[in-house]
Design a binder for these strands. Structure first.
Lengths: 216, 216
DNA sequence: ACACATTCGAGAGCACTGCTCTTGACGACA
DNA sequence: TGTCGTCAAGAGCAGTGCTCTCGAATGTGT
């Protein structure tokens, strides 16, 4: 039942964009709006459920993209595959992507459960770097300013043991830039400027691979 | 009059977030909601006016940040100053930033006037690279795939004559990554992970300067 | 089989939204 | 004085999230 609600809500989200109407999904279910409140305490709670699902769907897609590269030592190929998976998922689910990474809803404060789901995609990306460091293909850039080092050490201890902070930082920068380029395209900032978007994205992610230090 | 409406709308935007209520700003002006429609045909038109203003305000702030660097040949210093100006403006005007760069409103299609205003900030950033190329401090990386080259040549001809496409591309990537990192911070994706945000931002923009090829 | 408890959904209603249309007040100009 | 344009008020429409109450259905225990 709550799965059916989520499915219809996702359909509405895809069709109409961010402003999801409880009454509309209730109408589509042949129910009255108040009946929804049996299953979700509020619209925010429904959105939270969709957000968590979205993070996992994106994480799955990115992990699958990485997994398709058979040569696991081809770090650059894995990086590019994962980045393209991010972009492909975003283009296929623009409304959900906007829900995850777009402007936060004013009154809405993301509960804890979303932040743990949010970490799935960067986990895949930085996992590629972790593999590279473990095999000796990547080295520690070792160029972090002091205060940042402390923050990243904590993140490392929580999620990525064995990865040096400076390398983790490179991966985080790469992830944020991937997010930036995808959002730019998806939110219409490239309209009328760039047509060859997949090629341009690929080019940019290759430059990010250079920045991270992934061997060619 | 329309300036007063915009000012109050901006205040509401800053206070309450993205969902701007026409009736609320009318209330604050001691008017009735329908009176607003004398000055703005719709809520979208008001938002468009605020968006255009926002792009210009951000562009002004970034240009001012760049202009504060007295040594005009210090390309890296200018790049960092401009990037920090972007971040500072975003943190000072989060709701307006979200309006400009966040998820687009479903029914809303950005009219032409917004896209010409949107180009102001990248103009400043890439202007730094143009200066560097003119003085010989920057060279043409010359590493663009074919389809992208065509798109960027058109952009170059429209906005940045004399700048080679590959260098323009580097600047665009830098701008998108700057946007990505700022949005990540502003949209809450860094919450609970990074405390030393200004330092981390500075570090990341330095790495982007490396990628662009700005001399140290 | 009967009585009880729980679950479910319908319906009315509140306060709010963007937006349209009509009506009436006010001031400038001829 | 009369006319015309500008302005804002008010009512109203269709929609929103959300709360509350009230029946009907569905078990469940004795």
């Amino acid at each position: 039942m709550i799965n059916e609600i989520k499915a219809i809500a996702r359909r509405h989200l895809a069709a109409e964009g961010a402003n999801l109407s409880l009454r509309a999904v209730a109408r589509d279910m042949g129910m009255v709006s108040s009946a929804i409140y049996r299953y979700f305490a509020s619209r925010d709670e429904l959105l939270t459920a969709l957000i968590v699902d979205g993070y996992h769907a994106l994480g799955d897609a990115v992990a699958a993209g990485d997994a398709e590269v058979t040569d696991r030592t081809d770090l650059r190929g894995r990086w590019l595959a994962a980045c393209h998976a991010v972009r492909r998922w975003a283009l296929a689910h623009p409304a959900e992507y906007a829900l995850l990474f777009g402007s936060p809803v004013p009154g809405y404060a993301a509960p804890q459960e979303t932040t743990v789901a949010a970490v799935r995609t960067p986990t895949v990306l930085i996992g590629i770097l972790a593999d590279g460091f473990a095999s000796g293909a990547l080295s520690d850039p070792g160029d972090l300013p002091g205060p940042v080092q402390g923050d990243l050490a904590a993140v490392r201890d929580g999620f990525f043991p064995e990865v040096p902070e400076a390398l983790l930082s490179r991966g985080a920068t790469g992830w944020m830039c991937c997010f930036g380029v995808v959002s730019f395209e998806l939110f219409g900032q490239l309209d009328g400027l760039i047509q060859a978007r997949e090629e341009y994205f690929d080019h940019q992610m290759r430059r990010m691979a250079d920045l991270i230090g992934l061997p060619r």
